[in-house]
């Protein structure tokens, strides 16, 4: 039962964050780049204010998988870096915390771009 409740929370919070994005798309005609930029910034600001950690405790992957979680990692990395290394950590922290994700995205994009060709859209 517990595990069901966890997954329900993950589903609802994750879905809700995406739905907010969709409302923005409909209301403001934002392109996907802008949506991503905005959500990364929101995630980072919430983390800086200490509001994002409770959300992760509550919704787990529901708050990590949306791109706001990427913003949170960047901010968290910078704050942690500051504690460990001082000013140098502010420079290094953000990328260190997200290095795995970015590198994976770049590597997989590189590999699959070499393998696949672009196809015309159907719809």
């Amino acid at each position: 039962m517990d595990i069901f409740l966890t997954y329900l929370k993950v589903f609802c919070v994750g879905g809700f964050i995406c739905m907010l994005g969709q409302i923005l798309i409909i209301k403001t005609k934002m392109t996907s780049s802008r949506i991503l930029v905005l959500f990364v910034c929101i995630g980072a600001v919430l983390e800086a204010l200490g509001l994002y950690e409770p959300l992760i405790d509550f919704a787990k992957a529901g708050a990590i998988v949306p791109i706001t979680g990427f913003g949170r990692s960047l901010a968290k990395g910078a704050i942690q870096g500051l504690k460990e290394m001082g000013l140098l950590g502010v420079f290094a922290g953000g990328l260190t915390a997200t290095a795995a994700g970015i590198t994976c995205a770049v590597i997989s994009a590189f590999i699959f771009a070499l393998i696949f060709n672009s196809k015309t859209k159907k719809y």
């Binding site: 966890t6 997954y7 993950v10 589903f11 609802c12 919070v13 994750g14 879905g15 809700f16 964050i17 995406c18 739905m19 994005g21 969709q22 919704a59 787990k60 992957a61 529901g62 990590i64 998988v65 949306p66």
Partner: peptide, 13 residues
């Protein structure tokens, strides 16, 4: 958007 977004998060979890 809610369903697909939620589902991706559940898969992640």
């Amino acid at each position: 958007a809610f369903l697909v977004g939620g589902l991706i998060c559940v898969i992640g979890q």
